[in-house]
Design a binder for these strands. Structure first.
Lengths: 210, 210
DNA sequence: AGCCAATCTTGACAACGATCAGATTATCCC
DNA sequence: GGGATAATCTGATCGTTGTCAAGATTGGCT
């Protein structure tokens, strides 16, 4: 089962080491809490020497990039699933936001890597815009009434939602919010309340810059 | 002027090394971009041996904590100043949000340390609640019409605002937003538009959890 | 078969966080 | 004042990390 513990008959050339390294990295991120991952540890987990990864990634950060991209994919899948389930028709945007935050909370280390990579590149991954979570938000926005021809308004609304979701995702773990969360009857209700506060599901095209 | 470059007559006991270390750390954070700060580099900058800091901080993370606390103080000062200037009476909450984001953008490394420390402690620094930026938000919320006796509603609104501000602070640097920002006429207008989207200045007490 | 390029290992280097014994100095008690 | 005691700083050291260069091993192409 452990693909690296055979100790015998391990061919000198690992069939697809790149794939194995990314998987090992994901395994380590799931286990180890919020600590920073170590390239050597990933190689160790994959059962290769500490220098082997450098034949598949120029840098440590390039490995992290690969992990981040898979994370964004996974997030999009989960958001799509949430949207498919809750077909309430009205607050689908809130559903998206809650799914986003819950992903971040259930995979904190991966989410951190995702966002750190984005920030170091000063841009979000391309796939996000084309077929990922960002596109999902835009579609849901249009579907919920915003004018698709008002590109600025649409983008502004999407960006605002994304900011709110990211902010909530990183703040929701604070101990200070535990009593409030309990008072509202659980995490889901807490998230819904916050997103309602932010009025996410009734965006207007406020392009009137003073 | 440089307090560590005298090379002569430097007494064995550095008058207040703790203070000097924090200052050195802040200097390094200002210069060095988003990279992780090195404890040894801080000691070097302060002109002491690599082991000296361990007599004032148990850990590297404890030094970062000290830096973070000063950062939160600085943020509160800046927000207070922004509030004092723009006495428009209406959208003071937006003013606060914009000040928050601009601090984060002008001190990205410090802001990151601030938030990382908070996250590793799973709580925000205490001073924030008592006399810091959080209190400022609550006061402005009350001042702008929310019922101060509705503790849950007040906290919910403050938390929501904080989440939004943090989210915007970390997303606003993305290249993808540059055209939108230009189209709206600069960063300030962009931030105001986003905060308007989030309806921050007209919060309602939405304690109705389904 | 034979060669080339891709792949993996070994060994090494500098930098880091952390610890410990020892040097140096301040402080306090008599 | 003088000497003990605690605080502070240095030096050396350990284990770990990211990264590189040189050599071993192998798959694929002719």
């Amino acid at each position: 089962m452990e693909q690296a513990q055979l100790t015998e008959a391990r061919p000198y050339h690992h069939g697809d080491l790149r794939r194995a390294l990314v998987d090992a990295g994901r395994r380590l991120l799931e286990v180890e809490g919020g600590a920073s991952i170590s390239l050597r540890a990933v190689a160790r987990e994959a059962g290769v020497s500490p220098a082997a990864p450098y034949h598949h990634f120029r840098d440590k950060s390039e490995l992290l990039d690969a992990l981040a991209i898979e994370g964004w994919d996974q997030l999009a899948v989960q958001m799509r699933a949430a949207l498919a389930e809750a077909a309430t028709g009205r607050d689908r945007l809130v559903t998206l936001g809650v799914a986003y935050v819950q992903f971040a909370k259930m995979n904190p280390a991966i989410y951190r890597v995702m966002f750190d990579c984005s920030q170091s590149h000063e841009s979000m991954p391309e796939k996000l815009r084309d077929e990922g979570a960002y596109r999902l938000v835009c579609d849901t926005l249009v579907e919920s009434g915003i004018d698709p021809r008002d590109e600025v308004g649409l983008e502004l609304a999407a960006v605002a939602i994304w900011c709110a979701a990211h902010g909530v995702a990183e703040m929701v773990g604070f101990k200070e919010f535990a009593p409030l969360q309990a008072h509202l009857g659980g995490e889901a209700a807490f998230l819904q309340a916050i997103f309602s506060q932010l009025d996410l599901f009734r965006p207007r095209s406020a392009v009137t810059a003073s």
